[in-house]
């Protein structure tokens, strides 16, 4: 019983962060702030949902897999945040150079 309540709470919190991430992607004014919203909030949301489901499924192997999913997502997401931001900055710089020259 108490396990189910904790699962529900974790999933609801996860959903909240997903909604926050999506709203950030939709509403923020430029790419860099959108990146910030997406790569932080969504990962946290995934973390909460992963924790909730690991608790619900309650099998050690599945928990290990779910945990590794979250870990890889953190790694991939933060790296891609950096890569996209750098890509965008380079694009903007070369565009500015072209406009000036």
């Amino acid at each position: 019983m108490i396990k189910e309540v904790i699962t529900v709470i974790l999933l609801v919190v996860g959903c909240f962060f997903f909604l926050a991430g999506t709203l950030g992607v939709l509403r923020f004014p430029d790419l860099f702030s959108r990146l910030h919203a997406l790569t932080k909030a969504d990962n946290l949301g995934l973390g909460f949902i992963a924790a909730g489901m690991a608790l619900h499924i309650a099998s050690p192997w599945a928990a290990l897999k779910i945990f590794s999913i979250w870990l890889f997502t953190l790694l991939a997401s933060s790296t891609s945040c950096y890569l996209i931001a750098r890509f965008q900055r380079e694009q903007e710089q070369s565009k500015n150079k072209k406009e000036r020259g």
Binding site: F72, L75, A76, T79, L83
Partner: peptide, 15 residues
């Protein structure tokens, strides 16, 4: 040329 890019490729290859 980016060190982070190289590292992430090196990490994800064995995975």
């Amino acid at each position: 040329d980016d060190p982070l890019l190289r590292q992430v490729i090196l990490f994800f290859t064995p995975v």
